[in-house]
Design a binder for these strands. Structure first.
Lengths: 357, 357
DNA sequence: TTGAAAGCGCTAACAA
DNA sequence: TTGTTAGCGCTTTCAA
């Protein structure tokens, strides 16, 4: 067959009716063969299969799901903050891998910093009758999901726990990860540790900040207000905040950056100030090339692949009818020392800080 | 409404019939209201809308597309080599942005280094009756797409031109980009430039190699065979190939790496050999943090966002019925000098090479 | 302006 | 073993 060009006309795909006519059998017989049901004689099955091949017949899954009792579409929806974010992408890949084994397709969409798009995406997926949803929520408000929840669509949240709904969640151990990072810096002798975080509206950040605060409190250290910068939306904002924080009299000797882009913003700032070898840094969330920077960047690594895998497995269990109580899966993080987090605190501390230890 | 837990039972969603019954009108009237058709009196429309809200009714797009003449599903399929690859992810984002403006959802899937999955994915999307496909093909063989092509499903290829089919393609100017990169190294005085590339089965690589070869030939330079390493599948393989290439007698003084992961593999090798400040490097395709490495990495940047945007626009034009001849859109690349590509050639060249200039 | 009937492509339930 | 009928949720066609 020669490659056809263009595509103007309406698609004209063969249906079971066409196959039935060609094979000289009834519609139902074709259906049986196509679905591998038993009880079709070999010669008839052969004729049907031959007709299928001849017409290049592929059943219409939409029509099938419409008719079938369970209404399954063999499609799930995945709502991410940003497809292009490496963390999201890794989750996506893991979800796809699990879905693939069950012949389930994945509708993916991202919010691209537009919170309203969360409800649009969920509505769009819901209108296409996905069998379930995996959602990385933006803000605190998930009230728009009540319809879907009420309709009984299985859904699993990843990375961030929603505020309102009682649902399944799979996320990193943000609290312990942040606590470990902070203790790591404390162990290197630091007493003045700055905290830089993104949106305070997100539970994720609050947990990370709580872990940081706990570790500092346990060490008997009071953190001055200007050692905490929050609501840093962009890499740029993080860079500026870092510069401000490091150019005060009682500046931190170490930084804990609570998110990927913030870590990179902070690195930019350290370079600008030529302080990358004197100010210690631990970032939450690993990133590509962290090992090739100088100094290499110590991070608290998450396991997005495991998060995605667990979330997908859980979702399919729910789709399969599991109605046990909602679960809260916490995935451990791992501190990866690479150099930046092991820079020691300067021996001679400047005269007097506002709040001593 | 209290948050419901579990999801065991079959989803029971309201249908137009339910809405019609509640509103005390016919099915068709509900359909008219839901679709914004004219010719419904205000009071009736009001009653229908109220019933829709009360029941949380959302029309079933699958059923709609089944009945409608054109059979549109308002869904397209996107087949990528690897969702998690930053280039793919940027294309994905751009495609999604265009699709969003038309209320079209995107089914995304990746091959994850399994070429057979290309046909599976296309079949899965096709079975769900997507309105069109955007494909980043793996190998040369696209014969499995003949069915879909024959069925008239609009499709656009990105990044790589397929061998067999006469189809729309949107890709980077690989030839000119590679040529520019090579000339850039030549301009810095280099004569011995190594080429490292990935799979030779892909037209993309062949174009990049052709651009490299052209520039070298134009400069009157013959490239010895051991200055060319091909079929480097992994970052690791690229690293080893780079080490081998640089530890020969007549070693290159500069490298052109034809792909992202290969660039990073080469950087690892340069670090290992402590040669990152003496061997020049230009990589094809930009990557995050290239500017923060030392030296910062000079690259030929592609424009994945533009590629995705163009591909999606083209696809929707085809879906809209445009049947003009297939087009071949070439997106310009941009050389981004950052340091590694401007390292000069050593003044004293070792005695004699196998092939002079 | 409104609605009844038919049917999109397929499968469930029931006959033959 | 094979086929017939009905109907999934919706829109089209045509009649009231």
């Amino acid at each position: 067959m020669s490659p056809l060009s263009g595509s103007g006309g309406a698609l004209n795909r063969p249906t079971m009716k066409d196959v039935a006519a060609l094979a000289g059998v009834s519609l139902k017989t074709v259906s049986r063969v196509v679905n591998g049901e038993s009880g079709v004689s070999a010669p008839l099955a052969e004729r049907v299969e031959s007709a299928c091949r001849q017409l290049h017949f592929h059943p219409n899954l939409g029509a099938r799901s419409l008719r079938r009792g369970d209404g399954r579409t063999a499609t799930i929806g995945l709502v991410l903050e940003d497809i292009a974010n490496p963390f999201s992408a890794a989750v996506h890949r893991a979800v796809e891998t699990v879905a693939m084994t069950r012949d389930v397709a994945v509708l993916a969409g991202s919010l691209n910093e537009n919170p309203q798009r969360e409800r649009e995406l969920v509505a769009a997926f819901s209108a296409r009758r996905v069998d379930g949803l995996i959602i990385m929520p933006t803000g605190g408000d998930q009230s728009h999901l009540v319809d879907e929840r009420h309709a009984g669509i299985p859904m699993v949240f990843v990375d961030r726990a929603p505020e309102l709904l009682d649902v399944d969640v799979v996320l990193s151990d943000n609290y312990e990860g942040a606590r470990a990072a902070t203790r790591h810096l404390l162990a290197a002798g630091h007493r003045r540790i700055g905290f830089l975080g993104d949106r305070t509206g997100i539970a994720t950040l609050r947990d990370r900040q709580a872990g940081f605060s706990r570790a500092m409190a346990d060490a008997g250290i009071l953190v001055p207000a200007d050692h905490v910068a929050l609501d840093l939306d962009t890499m740029r904002a993080a860079e500026e905040a870092t510069v401000r924080m490091l150019t005060t009299a009682y500046a931190p000797t170490a930084l804990f950056t609570a998110q990927n882009l913030i870590t990179i913003g902070a690195i930019h700032a350290l370079r600008r100030l030529l302080r990358q070898r004197s100010v210690a840094l631990v970032g939450f969330d690993d990133f590509l090339l962290a090992d090739l920077l100088e100094p290499a960047v110590t991070v608290v690594a998450q396991d997005p692949h495991l998060i995605g895998t667990r979330a997908a497995e859980l979702l399919f269990r729910r789709i399969g009818g599991d109605s046990s109580p909602c679960s809260h899966t916490v995935i451990a993080t791992r501190l990866v020392p690479r150099g930046s987090g092991e820079l020691p605190a300067p021996v001679a501390t400047p005269a007097a800080g506002p709040l001593g230890e």
